[in-house]
Design a binder for these strands. Structure first.
Length: 303
RNA sequence: GGUGCCAUAGCUCAGUUGGUAGAGCAACGGACUGAAAAUCCGUGUGUCCCUGGUUCAAUUCCAGGUGGCACCA
């Protein structure tokens, strides 16, 4: 009998945390967080880490388990989650995953290609080259080393070019030769529950949550992390806008407004991604009863 | 009460020597397999305050009204 992973997803601020808690309690199981920022232990307020009350009721995995100084990515997450699930499924029929990090969700559901970890020295030397010679220099090298990917990639997106070139240089083989894009099969079933609501309601929930974060001391938390502002992990909504305030590029009020609108944009981007996933079963916040009923039926059908 | 200035996109404002209009932000849409809360690409959504007048044609000029701001009483 296959085990089941229930995935609760949706845009930021929609209420995934509290739904996940209810679902996990309903099935007496544990929660795997799927959030590329809550994973860092140094950040709490701006990433909306669940409160102690919530964390004490159900065991959560991948919450504040890594450091902002660690190199982390979707592939590492895939690997670590599969290990966690394997041991969780030894004692549970069901596991709950909750979060909005689109690529991390897909990494767990479909897997991603095997690639070597990026060598930080190669990365920094290529970034230095972009700064001195411009992105065109890397484009030309990619065209030479991997003409296949060069013809597919968005040439205006520096990160794509950078990463492809990193892999070419590190392995001596074209990046495209690793891009099998094969969908990995899992030995557990997956049921996806999406939460979404009217846009104006979503935005006002987000805005209220930002106000709450400031009351809890977001500005102070960001101030402590300011020395690490150049780390990728701190290229994060809620922090980068406050770094601009600390550098006197904006007022505090402007930074707060920017956090709100950037969160709106992030929510939209999440919804764009999810709209391409036909396996998601959509519900509105407040439909906990219907969702639990739906899940019970799904688990029955799959047994 | 008087005088002056202003009224254009959701907001802040350009602009049209008269031929129905554009920037920034917001909003909206899309791409995306190792930095993904990242990165990249695309879209103007409008009774140009109202009512008359002049004119082939008024958002633009004129008059009156309404609202706002400033100053003088």
């Amino acid at each position: 009998m296959p085990k089941t992973l229930i995935i609760i997803l949706g845009p930021t601020g929609i209420g995934k945390t509290s739904l996940a808690l209810q679902v996990a309690k309903h099935y007496s199981t544990e929660i795997i967080s799927c959030d590329s920022r809550q994973i860092y232990r140094e950040m709490r307020i701006g990433t909306a880490v669940p409160d102690q009350e919530t964390l004490s009721q159900v065991k959560h995995h991948f919450i504040q388990t890594h450091s902002i100084h660690d190199y982390y990515n979707a592939s590492k997450y895939e690997l670590e989650v599969l290990q966690t699930l394997a041991s969780l499924f030894e004692t549970h029929e069901v596991a709950v995953m909750a979060g909005g990090s689109m690529m991390y969700i897909d990494a767990v559901c479909k897997g991603i290609d095997d690639l070597p970890d990026v060598d930080p020295e190669i990365r920094s030397s290529l970034i230095a080259r972009i700064n001195t010679e411009g992105i065109e220099s890397l484009r030309m090298e990619l065209r030479y080393l991997d003409p296949v990917y060069y013809s597919e990639v968005d040439l205006r997106n520096p990160k794509r070019i950078l990463h492809a070139l990193e892999i070419c240089i590190m392995t001596g083989k074209p990046y495209s030769s690793f891009r099998t894009r094969r969908i990995k099969t899992r030995d557990f079933d997956i049921v996806k529950v999406g939460l979404n609501t009217e846009r104006s309601i979503l935005y006002s929930r987000i805005d209220q949550r930002v106000e709450e974060m400031f009351r809890e001391g977001l500005a102070e938390e960001a101030k402590e992390l300011y020395p690490f502002r150049n780390l990728n992990s701190l290229n994060t909504v809620g922090y980068k806008e406050l770094f601009d305030f600390f550098e006197e590029k904006t007022s505090l009020e402007e930074a707060k407004e920017k956090i709100k609108t950037n969160s709106h944009k992030y929510a939209r981007k999440q919804l764009t991604w999810f709209s391409g996933d036909s396996s998601i079963n959509w519900f509105s916040p407040g439909m906990e009863r219907e969702i639990l009923k739906f899940l019970d039926e799904q688990l029955c059908v799959q047994d």
